[in-house]
């Protein structure tokens, strides 16, 4: 605890932590079959840490779900496996390739794998009968998210209706569902990118190595630096160079850009983030760049 107990004040991180733990306990008590959506990125690791704290010394009372798009960084999977093993939680993996093979998802060759994640995720939720899915979305990330509830209702098609959200007051969450519906629960809604880093630093928890500065062979596309990988063939005119970079977010390798950086420790990253002038999604997420409402539209369909 970093709290200043003498005057009964809690630091902002302690207050955020207490709020998130409250949300985890509410949802675990009220939903029949919750699951935690885990990408392996820093936000979902913080989420997992908070879930660990919420139920300690008992194990986390729900499984962890990962959507494998086949394009994740190998470093992310390694970190994920160590977390899952340490906590003794059950890992459910839903793979896009498997969903395509089974005919659940149609790959028309034009749709990005990012978009194919949505039907794969919805199918995994339906097949496993999950009634609530914890997500690591933060309201400071994007303006459609800024309006989303902590308990965000999804209809039987997995859709979000932003114009028809339930009012959410105090810390009273309404978890009522009809058959076939589910709830997305966002325990870290009120955290900012900087809070996440402060917390990772304070807790001393493991995150994937791609967040720290390293040497990587990269090329430029649409103003972003993308990693060289056989999964993402070079287009005409694109040149690979080796640079010192790090990732601010961990998504699909073919769409997530890295930034040039020498920040190799948490304090250095915090310093860099505090000085950053571009949002983490704006800087590095190809999937958010399509339109002003790209996130709102994907979320309506049932995206994370």
């Amino acid at each position: 605890m970093t709290a200043t107990h003498a005057d009964y004040r809690l630091s902002q991180l302690d207050q955020l932590e207490a709020e998130s733990i409250h949300i985890f306990r509410e949802a675990a008590a009220e939903f029949e079959k919750p699951v935690l959506m885990f990408s392996g990125g820093k936000d979902s690791i913080v989420m997992l840490r908070l879930a660990e704290k919420a139920f300690f010394p008992a194990k986390i009372p729900f499984p962890v779900l990962q959507i494998d798009n086949g394009l994740d960084f190998p470093e992310v999977a390694e970190t994920r496996d160590r977390w899952v093993q340490r906590l003794g939680v059950r890992l459910v993996i839903a793979s896009i390739d498997d969903a395509i093979a089974r005919g659940i998802v149609v790959d028309d060759g034009k749709t990005s794998r990012n978009r194919l994640q949505t039907p794969t995720l919805l199918n995994a939720i339906e097949e496993n009968g999950f009634t609530a899915a914890f997500g690591g979305g933060r309201r400071d990330e994007e303006k459609a998210r800024a309006k989303e509830r902590v308990y965000s209702h999804r209809d039987e098609f997995g859709q979000w209706d932003p114009k028809n959200q339930r009012p959410e007051l105090w810390s009273l969450y309404n978890g009522r569902l009809h058959e076939g519906e589910h709830m997305r629960v966002f325990p870290i809604s009120n955290w900012t990118e900087l809070d996440i880093w402060d917390y990772i630093g304070r807790e001393g928890i493991e995150i994937p190595s791609v967040y720290f500065a390293h040497q990587r062979r990269v090329f430029e596309r649409d103003g972003m630096l993308l990693t060289e990988t056989p999964l993402n063939p070079l287009r005409e005119g694109e040149v690979v160079t080796e640079r010192t970079v790090r990732y601010r977010t961990c998504g699909d390798m073919t769409l997530t850009g890295c930034v040039e950086s020498t920040a190799s420790t948490i304090p250095e990253i915090i310093e860099e983030v505090a000085a950053a002038r571009v949002t983490e999604r704006g800087a590095t997420r190809g999937d958010d760049r399509f339109s002003e409402a790209a996130m709102e539209d994907r979320k309506k369909e049932g995206y994370f």
Binding site: Q12, R139, A146, K147, N190, T192, L194
Partner: peptide, 13 residues
Amino acid sequence: DVAYRYFATPNRK
């Protein structure tokens, strides 16, 4: 709708 916004100064979030 209610929108939540975040900012911080060195003393307070």
